[in-house]
Amino acid sequence: MKKTPESSAAVDLRDVHKIYGTGPDPVAALDGVSLRIDPGEFVAITGTSGSGKSTLMHLVGCLDTPTSGRVSVAGEDISTAGSDRLARLRNRSIGFVFQAFNLLPRLDVQGNIELPLVYAGIPRRERRQRALDAAAKVNLTDRLTHRPSQLSGGQCQRVAVARALVNDPALILADEPTGNLDTTNGADVLRLLAELHRSGRTIVLVTHDPAVAARAARVVEMRDGRIVKDTAT
């Protein structure tokens, strides 16, 4: 990868368009979005449903590619990447935290945390060690052999955060991480993300809730596929 200024950014979008549908009535989910997120930033992306923030998150999360424009994640241009390369990027550079936790019900806590390492081809013993370290960071060392169904919602989301960190990604991408949690547990998870930010990680938080967004150092507001506000708090 060539080392250009944008390649030092955690995320760099340049005039990105994403258009769904090809018929007479295509929908532009993203309409010329440019956004740069530096390593170590804590950014919240807000907006109402339909504002394009989910689409933006999919691009930043390497789950999708843009119709036009350039998207770089962790220094790699993914605008035209194939599915294998996207998968590798998701595996190495991005940790996902979802609203619905998305833990695998038949794996125990350790198995869930290890999952990205399995696809990274890390040997079993090292996987175990790294999963233990990640579990310690979210304070779940005593629940390693539990299954998700035996955990509370807050604990599940902490497992998900541990899973997001385990492969030491450049970027942690949290999509409405508090949406399924009560206030206490939600605050817990936000505190965890803030801690991770303080320890130097790049966090991108997608939420429609201004109160949650307020936890971030920078808030990007979307509307109709464009960035309408980009404020540092």
Binding site: A87, L104, P116
Partner: peptide
């Protein structure tokens, strides 16, 4: 989920 965490 497997795809999201890096399964090809």
């Amino acid at each position: 989920v497997r795809l999201a965490v890096g399964a090809r």
